[in-house]
Amino acid sequence: MMKEDINPGQIELTILANPAYLCVARAAVRKALEISGFDAQDADGVTLALDEALTNVIRHSYGGPCEKPIIIKLSQIPNYQKKTSALEVVVRDFGKHVDPKTIKSRDLNEVRPGGLGVHIIQTVMDEVEYSCVSEGGMQLRMLKLIQLTDCCEMTSGVRASFGGSRIEKAQ
């Protein structure tokens, strides 16, 4: 597919909090980053961090798979801190409030299953910020400083809903 056909711009996806949709979110975001000219390694990292964030929402914010939505937003911030471009990834849920100060990586010297998601997100992304949303739920804002291999300005967008029925192209 030609870059001109997509022009990814600001992207918004809504999926249901069901692990079966993780692959859909990964594929959509990975493809959008690839088409936008992101370095493959960066695109892999962002895709992994997003997967871990969505997994945490399903497991912890919603307490397991359910029919509630998770909104994913991607946007490019040009001239971030007057140095470089950055990719902003926002994951919004409507689950329970969690004190952001309690969301921490665990001690990696302790070899045991689980508890690695936050560490992976913090390692892969350059900035990570959790916040409670007053209307309910949590928001995770992740930032990745980026090197575009084939620069493509993000101007328009795509909105899609998986697990629902909405797929539309935003102007």
């Binding site: 990964r26 895709t47 997967d51 871990e52 045991r112 299953p113 689980g114 690695l116 998601g117 992976i120």
Partner: peptide
């Protein structure tokens, strides 16, 4: 091609 922390957790559990 892809594995996340849930897959890792399963590998660690098997190893233990």
């Amino acid at each position: 091609d892809f594995m996340d922390s849930s897959g890792l957790a399963t590998l660690v559990e098997a190893m233990q």
